[in-house]
Amino acid sequence: MIKFNNVTKIYENITALRNVSFSIEKGEFVYITGPSGAGKTTLLKLIYLAEKPDSGDISIAGWDFNALKEKAVPYLRRNIGVVFQDFKLLNNKTVYENIAIALRIRGFKDKEIKERVYDALKLVNLRHKSDNYPPTLSGGEQQRATIARAIVGEPTILIADEPTGNLDADNTAGIMKIFKEIHAKGTTVLFATHNRNLFRHTGMRVLRLDSGNLVADEIG
């Protein structure tokens, strides 16, 4: 499903990722961990094509990035749901509209959009806040709205960049429950976190990064 082969990414003389190779199968739940600046966000950005590697090969769901034409980029991105570290919610749109936009982009009709958005909101327990604007939501609620937007298009891969970074224990537990439910439906999940407690004793796969190097591929 996801293959990295000797991938290197350099930002102005700083190597964010160095010769990283790994492979993730369909339906896996993989934690990506490491200290700040280890390269977790860069790795995720490379997957959803927000960045391009300086060398190496990446392929996602059979799409070879080196041979990928520019016009195919949006169609590949539609296969990947992203929960951004900074949410990236649009403050001038309601929670409903923020989630619906992911479907409008895909050309869904209004009736189907409504059904799918409410299903996604129900899953993240935010149905009652559908008409609210993001600035009126708590951090946990904003995070859940972002998750709803990421999953509403039923992507085959779900990427989350520190989704529990700023949340308290209760909210974190709630978010983790949602991710497990999504994974149970067969979605491949990549979950970046520096919080070891989230993957300790879970029996899930953990990719550990340090200074841009993949230092461990282990079971948590």
Binding site: Y48, A50, K88, I101, I105, R149, G153
Partner: peptide, 16 residues
């Protein structure tokens, strides 16, 4: 601009 960046990341085509 910010809104457009989000649209791009969500898979919007140039036409959209």
């Amino acid at each position: 601009k910010e809104e457009i960046e989000v649209y791009k990341l969500l898979g919007a085509t140039k036409g959209f």
